[in-house]
Computed example of a mutant assay.
Amino acid sequence: MSAGKSGITPKVMVVYGTRPEAIKVAPVIKALEADPNLEPIVVVTAQHREMLDQVNQVFEIEPDVDLNLMAHGQTLNSIAGSVISKIDEVLAEHEPDAVVVQGDTTTVMGAAIAAFNREIPVVHLEAGLRSGDINSPFPEEANRKIVSQIARVHLAPTMVSRSNLLADGVPEENIHVIGNTVIDALQWAVERPVEFSLPELRALESDDRRVLLVTTHRRENLGDNMVNIGKAMRHLATNYPDLLIIWPAHKNPKVRASIAPQIEDLDNVISIEPVEYGEFSHLINASDIVLTDSGGIQEEAPSLGKPVLVLRENTERPEAVDAGTVKLIGTATEKIIAEVSQLLDDSKAYRDMANAVNPYGDGHSAGRSVDVLNELLGGR
């Protein structure tokens, strides 16, 4: 393809809907804006409204189209249906030459299907992640496998991801290993001076206590698993009075109902509202240990030398586990207590994880993404 449908500059539509997507597409959008050979069109579904807006503000991104699809009590099927129908309208209006989606959310799956049905090339950023369990994480594992079947270009973060795609039958020439753009975003955010908005976080600069950062939100952890996590937090706070636990409480009321009652009376546990991305990057940097069921933090924290204990039985990001900077520990209360305690009590165990090499890239993944897009669309 030598030029866009307009015959002038190829148009690249970037579609995203959640905070994790926004973080990882932001460096690509900025790189597209700086490239004179491609025209970016930024579309947000707002599957997550408030948290998405925070990231856009940090990276100074103004969407061209805001579908504002978030609705109270929305189901996965209602989100998927809205994304496909609304994105189809946007595709008809703007006629992009390629559509970029990132990761594995319902927005990603719906936008990819809408583009594929219009025979528009789908470019999948962070392609090839696999946990091996269709129900964990749910529905993300299914979403990314669906997108892999219809994408024209697969931007894989690692060689492991490349191998997964080859095993799924994706042609080798359609796969490009570029690293993970989350490292581009994190380096950019950490290098920018940020003052914490909350006094509890500003006090970290003069607080000598070790910090355990806890984030929980996974759908498959709701219920008993989340209660187990809360019990472990209480035990650790009680038995390590010199430990400061910081818990940015996810907006999901089910998460809060499981954990908040168990920690609300503890002086060394700080429960806060989710902070914007720039602050959160600095919060990771100020922490000593990260306890999480998040996917992105498994990539971010290791690049800052922070050991990560993952509250899951499996992960689609095995590279950091193999490198030794991430450890899968599940959600059993006693297991969580034992693993955190080991890092607190055993300096060698801590150093071994903190000094492991991060396998996710060098901070130049966005530039490589744009090079691939130019090759696809003949931008230069």
Rank of each mutant, 00 (worst) to 15 (best):
V326S: 04
D371E: 15
D242H: 01
E375S: 12
L186Q: 06
P199I: 01
V99A: 07
M226I: 12
D362A: 00
T215W: 07
E89F: 14
K86G: 08
A112P: 14
K335R: 15
N174G: 04
R312T: 11
D168A: 12
R144H: 10
H217P: 02
Y16V: 02
Q47V: 07
Q102V: 10
Q149F: 11
L309Q: 04
P193M: 02
A34E: 15
Q102E: 14
V147I: 10
A257D: 15
V321G: 05
A356S: 13
G379S: 11
Q102D: 01
K327W: 03
I246S: 02
A114S: 11
I61Q: 07
V44C: 12
M51G: 06
A22C: 03
K327L: 11
G367S: 14
E60A: 08
H364N: 10
S369K: 00
H72E: 14
Y16T: 02
V58Y: 02
H364P: 09
A111T: 01
A46H: 13
T107P: 03
S78L: 11
G169E: 10
M353K: 09
A301P: 04
E319I: 01
P274F: 00
L52P: 12
S365M: 06
P137I: 01
R130H: 11
I41M: 04
P137H: 13
E339D: 12
D168W: 12
Q149C: 14
M1F: 11
N221L: 07
D371R: 15
V308G: 06
E375N: 12
E62F: 13
G103V: 01
V43T: 10
D53L: 14
R218I: 04
S281H: 04
R152I: 03
I229K: 00
A34F: 12
K327Q: 11
V211S: 04
S365G: 08
V160P: 06
D97Q: 06
A80N: 13
L155V: 13
Q74N: 09
V15N: 00
G305C: 07
A366F: 12
N285S: 14
S294L: 09
V310D: 05
M353Q: 08
K254T: 10
P171I: 02
P121D: 06
E220V: 14
A71F: 07
R380Y: 09
Y240S: 06
V170P: 03
V326C: 02
V255F: 00
L283M: 00
L309E: 01
H217M: 03
E33G: 05
